[in-house]
């Protein structure tokens, strides 16, 4: 055990704590709270009922006030634990509240109304997960539609990206032709033309092609990614040219060389690009916001932002939907984090 502690608290100097050790641990533990805390808080909140969400101070875990059906009252009444003037405690139901005085009844004797100062009572609460926050958006809202739209856009765009980018990367890495450098420069130059610079004319082109309010209008402008071409090309350059010569001697057509030799050998880079593309397309916001104006076409991100921008925000649903929107990305993070971090460290792409 002490060996473990020694390992965990490995320090700079042999003797005592150097100030940098203290800074390190403060920074790391603080980072842990600041980075994970908000997301954890979001997930916790997403299980709270609307009443619990409106509470201040909030509770860490989702609680609901217990209710009891009392004879003579239509609605279930909230239960409170009341401290009587004599010091004894009793569980009473609240009928109504006027200022700081509450009119309460004992559930067993619904006729006797007792007046209690609200400072002398605490609600009877139990932990309860409001799973309806999750189930209702699926039935009452277009949430399933949004989910489907997002999945469709993400999967289709990623597949097209992989095919189109890998073909271009193959041409740019394994063929000698006039204008190759020019094509490469042209593609790299696109990095300088982000969406925010061309959104007005792009919108008109997409409209002219009849792709306004069409998921393809979201997909197509995103698929010819310069970063994708770039990382695939860099990877393909490491594949020996002799393999291609060998395949040509083996009577393979150029298309066969592409999909039977090059694609399988580029698999690791394709995997990295696929992961990135999924995250990119799943998270896309501004462009879908511009292209999609019909509710039934919204992607999750657009739907969420529109609902959260309404005057009367239904936070309990928004929070739950936000959690659902996070799930795929969190899964990617948990299982493929290593892939991504090495991908970024190696190529500097995002």
């Amino acid at each position: 055990m002490s060996r473990l502690a020694e390992f965990i608290f490995r320090r700079r100097g042999r003797n005592g704590w150097h100030w940098t050790d203290i800074v390190t641990w403060l920074w790391l533990v603080g980072g842990l709270f600041i980075m994970f805390g908000p997301a954890v808080w979001l997930v916790g909140s997403s299980f709270k009922s609307p009443a619990a969400l409106a509470e201040f101070p909030p509770t860490i875990m989702p609680y609901v006030t217990q209710k009891a059906t009392v004879e003579g009252y239509d609605k279930p009444l909230d239960l409170y634990e009341v401290t009587r003037p004599d010091g004894s405690k009793a569980v009473l139901a609240e009928v109504r509240r006027i200022g700081i005085v509450a009119q309460m009844v004992a559930p067993e004797k619904p006729t006797d109304i007792v007046k209690v100062n609200i400072a002398e009572r605490t609600p009877v609460r139990t932990m309860s997960f409001a799973t309806t926050n999750y189930t209702e958006p699926f039935t009452h809202f277009d949430f399933v539609r949004y989910l489907w739209n997002s999945v469709f856009v993400t999967v289709t765009a990623t597949l097209i990206t992989l095919i189109v980018n890998s073909m271009a990367a193959f041409a740019l890495s394994k063929y000698e032709f006039r204008g190759r450098t020019f094509a490469m420069l042209l593609i790299l130059a696109t990095l300088m033309v982000p969406l925010s610079v061309i959104m007005v004319p792009l919108y008109s082109i997409v409209s002219a092609l009849g792709l306004f309010n069409n998921l393809w209008g979201v997909i197509l402008p995103t698929v010819a990614t310069p970063t994708g071409v770039f990382i695939l090309r860099q990877y393909m350059l490491t594949i020996p040219d002799e393999l291609i010569d060998a395949a040509r001697m083996d009577k393979a057509s150029e298309w066969q060389i592409y999909w039977r030799i090059i694609l399988p050998l580029t698999a690791p880079a394709l995997a990295v690009l696929a992961i990135f593309s999924v995250v990119w397309r799943w998270n896309d916001f501004l462009w879908p916001l511009i292209v999609l104006s019909r509710k039934e076409l919204y992607t999750l991100q657009v739907g969420l932002s529109i609902y959260s921008g309404e005057l009367n925000v239904q936070w309990h649903f928004i929070l739950a939907m936000t959690v659902v929107t996070m799930i795929p990305v969190v899964l990617v993070f948990i299982f493929l984090q290593r892939f991504i971090t090495t991908g970024i460290a190696g190529t500097g792409l995002k």
Partner: peptide, 22 residues
């Protein structure tokens, strides 16, 4: 620890905005 600091990078901007708005 690297993962701790990297975690928010993958979140969508909309989710980030909503988390902090909340």
């Amino acid at each position: 620890w690297r993962a701790v600091f990297f975690f928010p990078v993958l979140l969508s901007p909309v989710v980030v905005g909503l988390i902090w708005k909340w």
